[in-house]
Amino acid sequence: MDTSNSNSDAPAMDAITGKPMPRPIPASTLVIFRDQPGSSAPDLLMVERSAKMVFAAGAAVFPGGRVDDADFDFAKALGHEDHEEYGARIAAIRESIEETGIAVAVDGNLDAKRVLEARNALHDGTILAEICSQFDWQLELEKLIPFSRWCPPFAEKRVFDTRFYMISHDDHQAQATVDETENYNLFWGNAQSVLDRAEAGEVKIIFPTKRNLERLAQFGSFDEAVGHTRDYPSVMVSPHIEKRENGVHLCIPEGIGYPITSEAMEAVQRGFSKQGGPKEGQ
């Protein structure tokens, strides 16, 4: 598990401009697995973000978003000393309900009507702690498996320090539905099929999503993915730019579980902001 603190007192510097970086916004993302009997690869739940969103507009990403103060407060109330880690886990669960209508890592009455009530309440501003108290829900935070953590060294208007978690959800009866605010479509598909759709121009994926999908495409089941994280525990991934003989590449470190660690800069231009640095997140 990565417990490094990116919010140190000394400001980080932009890798390109040398200017001070803005304080990263804590964020959390959940890779929801659904093993497919008879299939060589599990399905993953992807959401396609609205074109009106400031971050990753129109891109296919994993469900997730920023960690709210209420998430940190809930983690503290539950007795977790590492409230940054467990606040992020709480946020991942909350965002999954908000964005997809699926409740994971929750023990209690999870019939469709109850989950819809919780989703509507979250959209109306009710915090998850109050919903759990009202519905007698208990969060099973240990079910979330840390997968990775990304934070770019580029001074965007919004820089996200994003923790990625995995969880298995084999309830095939649970219907994921769009929230019609932040996303306009969602779909299940194995990691390689999403990569193939992106290659064909059918969906848009940004640099972190592509690297994570390539890593996830190695696994034939959720259990295989969990075993992989034991060999390659979650660490902070901070992309960097390298000038090579064949051009400029955006790179991530070797030896942390990713089968592909670089991509030609021109191939990732759609994932960049006007300032020239890569957008970060889901």
Rank of each mutant, 00 (worst) to 15 (best):
N120K: 12
N185Y: 01
G276P: 00
A70Q: 14
L30K: 04
I25Q: 07
P233S: 00
P239W: 02
Y258L: 00
P259A: 04
M1D: 09
V106H: 03
G38C: 07
M53F: 01
F164P: 03
Q275W: 05
V268Y: 01
D82M: 10
F222S: 05
Q218R: 13
P42T: 11
E156Y: 01
G271H: 01
F272R: 12
I16W: 03
N190E: 09
K52Y: 06
H249T: 11
A51W: 09
V115E: 08
N185V: 00
V115Q: 02
V106K: 08
E242I: 13
N246W: 02
I205V: 14
E254H: 02
I127N: 15
A15D: 12
G227H: 07
G271M: 01
I206E: 06
K210L: 10
L186Q: 15
S4I: 02
I102C: 07
V237Y: 03
Q138K: 15
P37N: 06
M265L: 11
F55C: 06
L186G: 13
R89L: 06
R158P: 03
D231I: 05
D68V: 12
E84I: 13
A225P: 00
E98Y: 01
K76S: 15
Q275D: 10
T209M: 11
D43S: 10
C132R: 10
A70R: 11
G101F: 04
A27W: 00
G201K: 06
S193V: 13
G257R: 01
L30S: 05
V31I: 15
K76E: 15
G227N: 14
P20N: 14
C251W: 08
L250G: 05
C251H: 04
E202G: 04
A92L: 09
G79D: 10
F187S: 09
G277M: 06
E48N: 02
E117I: 04
K113A: 13
H240Y: 13
G257V: 00
V159Y: 00
R211P: 01
G271Y: 00
V235E: 07
S39I: 03
V67M: 09
P259G: 00
E180W: 06
E142K: 15
H123Q: 10
E84A: 15
Q138Y: 05
I25T: 10
K113Q: 08
E84P: 02
